[in-house]
């Protein structure tokens, strides 16, 4: 209920709060009369840039730290009942075909993989690099974190990066479309499905401002802050 109220508040705050007339409603926005579309204030995209080896290690390390924290938080029963250091030592280095239900192999692992992929894309890696880093992150998690409760799983090692990157590519395109509509509900869901765009490491958000040059030419300036 709180989430619903918060969502309604967010939408109203960003669009129609305090509006009295049609002029008031649109006074902070420009209407694109010919296309009947909103003119958004921001443009969202992905900036691809080169990374040093140190930066790659930092980004990998951040993702690894996140998996280290999130695993016991999301699987407390499994960690408490099945986890032990003896099991960790026995499972280390082993790969098995696990018998998990399709819910885990086809849904949960690809969703996790997609969020890892989107994190690396937000950090400025190209699609190929993001896929490879997702594979490495998944392998690090399977071989050094999840072995506390069960051995590394071959289907998980494959599904998380491959299915996850494909799903991540789809979420990336959908979230960019939603974020660039200028619609507050679109922006809300665009951030929900792609939360990496909310953090400091995402530098693809540009402010669009109209500008008139000295010789009277009208142009659009894009300010990128990183």
């Amino acid at each position: 209920m709180k989430i619903i109220l918060l969502t309604i508040w967010f939408i109203l705050e960003t669009s129609m709060l305090g509006a009295q007339t049609k002029e008031d409603l649109y006074k902070n926005q420009q209407l694109n009369e010919s296309q009947k579309a909103r003119t958004p204030k921001y443009h969202f995209g992905y900036i691809e840039k080169p990374h040093s080896t140190t930066q790659i290690f930092k980004d990998l390390g951040f993702a690894y730290g996140l998996t280290l924290v999130l695993y016991p938080l999301t699987q407390p029963e499994a960690v408490a009942s099945k986890g032990s250091w003896t099991r960790y030592k026995d499972n280390l280095g082993n790969i098995v075909f696990d018998h998990d239900a399709p819910f885990w192999n086809v849904m949960v692992h690809p969703i996790s993989g997609s969020q890892l992929y989107l994190y690396y894309r937000a950090c400025g890696y190209n699609k190929g690099q993001a896929f490879l880093l997702t594979s490495l992150s998944s392998a690090l998690f399977e071989f050094t974190v999840e072995v506390y409760t069960e051995p590394a799983s071959a289907p998980d090692l494959f599904n998380t990066p491959v299915l996850g990157s494909i799903l991540g590519y789809g979420i990336e395109n959908l979230s960019m479309y939603l974020l660039n509509t200028g619609n507050p509900l679109g922006r809300f869901f665009g951030h929900v499905i792609n939360p990496a765009t909310l953090f400091w490491f995402y530098d693809g958000k540009m402010i669009i401002t109209p500008d008139i040059s000295k010789d009277g030419q009208v142009m659009t300036r894009l300010y990128l802050d990183f």
Binding site: N126, K127, G128, Q129, F131, L132, V162
Partner: peptide, 10 residues
């Protein structure tokens, strides 16, 4: 730096 987009396919 060999992970360019032309080499990796999904």
């Amino acid at each position: 730096g060999h992970a360019n987009e032309k080499a990796i396919l999904l």
